[in-house]
Simulated assay, not measured.
Amino acid sequence: MFRREYIETEWRGCPSITGKLEELVKESGIQEGLCVVSAPDLTTALGITSFWDKRGLEDLMDELDRDFPARVDYKSQRTPFDSVGNVKGAVVGRSLSLIIHEGKLVLGSSQGVVLLEFDGPRRRPYEVQLVERSLTLYKTGIKTQYMGMCGITDWVRSCVKESGVKEGLCHVSQLHSTAGILLCGRSEPAKADLMADIERMVPTRADFKHRETASDAGGHVKTALTGSQISLAVHHGELVIGEDQDLVFAEFDGPRPRTVYAAVMGEKM
């Protein structure tokens, strides 16, 4: 089932599309599968983030403005906001996938899907493809430290092996608003460098508008920028991943007990 939907945006902001996605899943009648969402316009993006405090969404937009300010020296020069909006959209990402299980989107209690507007106001399209596929859903618990990365590649490989799928897809997601799922270098120095640069890009500090804690407020922004999910191919019964790559759970506001999900789908030949 494919649908193109539209949403009216303001000059900048993060309007929610979660309710519409849930409505489409219910309408489709699909019980197991994937919901693939994409934003075709260059000055928009899609993100999964917390919806509890609107000030957290303002923090996200403010941080993107700080890291990628509108300026007049872009080579792509339609308008400064159009040019920088293209950059922001590429950094945040314009597509995401969500697991459908038992007829519902698999989202955390504080998670929502938003369309980020960088050059509004406009009537923005977003495209939704609902794919019905039989899947096996696995989950595991992780105890994290304050900030850091925990490798989950071996666990995901074990899920693929247990599923019996030979050719298909493994979709990995986490349902928290201050953590991420990343594919990075296997070495500990490489992971340390990545965490350090994420912290440099979004420093933990006291001037966020979201007022729970500094690490919580910064964690919401880091999660939106790094992503909460990833899809990897399964070929000959094995997870397709580079020799020097590691699939990791990134903690931005620990220590906490966390949960990771893996949905394996495909042909069992």
Rank of each mutant, 00 (worst) to 15 (best):
T178G: 04
I152V: 06
V84I: 15
D41W: 14
S109T: 15
E188N: 13
T140Q: 14
V72K: 13
K191Y: 01
G185K: 04
T213E: 12
I198W: 03
E238I: 01
G164H: 12
R205L: 10
Y6E: 15
V84G: 06
V114H: 09
R71T: 14
Y261F: 12
R211E: 05
L182T: 11
S228C: 11
G89T: 10
T144P: 03
L46S: 05
R200V: 00
A90C: 13
K222Q: 00
T44K: 04
V248T: 10
S158R: 03
W11Q: 08
D253M: 04
S163M: 04
I30W: 08
F118T: 06
W52D: 10
E167Q: 09
G180D: 03
D62A: 02
K143A: 10
S177F: 03
S76H: 15
A224N: 03
K268M: 14
D216G: 01
M195K: 03
S16D: 15
G141V: 04
R66D: 06
G120M: 15
F68M: 08
L64C: 06
I17D: 01
G103Y: 06
E162N: 13
Q145H: 06
G47S: 15
L175F: 02
G254Y: 07
Q31S: 12
A217R: 00
G29C: 07
K88I: 09
F249C: 13
L232C: 02
T44H: 00
V240T: 10
V248M: 10
F252C: 09
L21Y: 04
P257W: 06
F252P: 03
A196H: 10
S163N: 02
G103E: 00
D41S: 14
E58M: 15
E8P: 00
D119F: 10
V84M: 11
E23C: 02
M149P: 01
W11Y: 07
Y74N: 13
R122F: 07
I230E: 01
V72W: 11
E32Y: 06
C35W: 04
I17F: 02
C35Q: 06
K88A: 10
L57K: 12
H176R: 13
T153A: 00
L46R: 02
Q145V: 08
D41Q: 13
A70T: 11
T226A: 13
L175E: 06
D62F: 01
I7A: 06
Q77K: 12
E127L: 12
D207S: 15
V156W: 02
K268E: 14
P125M: 09
G13Q: 04
A214H: 05
K75D: 12
E132R: 07
G254S: 11
V172N: 00
P121H: 11
M147I: 07
S16Y: 08
K143C: 11
T178M: 03
R256L: 12
T153Y: 00
E243I: 07
M1D: 12
G112K: 01
P80N: 01
A196Q: 13
V114R: 04
G227D: 02
M61T: 13
D207N: 15
A39G: 11
E243Q: 14
I7M: 01
L175W: 03
I241R: 08
G108N: 07
A233E: 14
E117D: 09
K139T: 10
L98W: 04
I152S: 00
L64M: 14
H176Q: 15
L247H: 06
E238W: 02
T136L: 08
G151D: 05
V264S: 05
D62M: 02
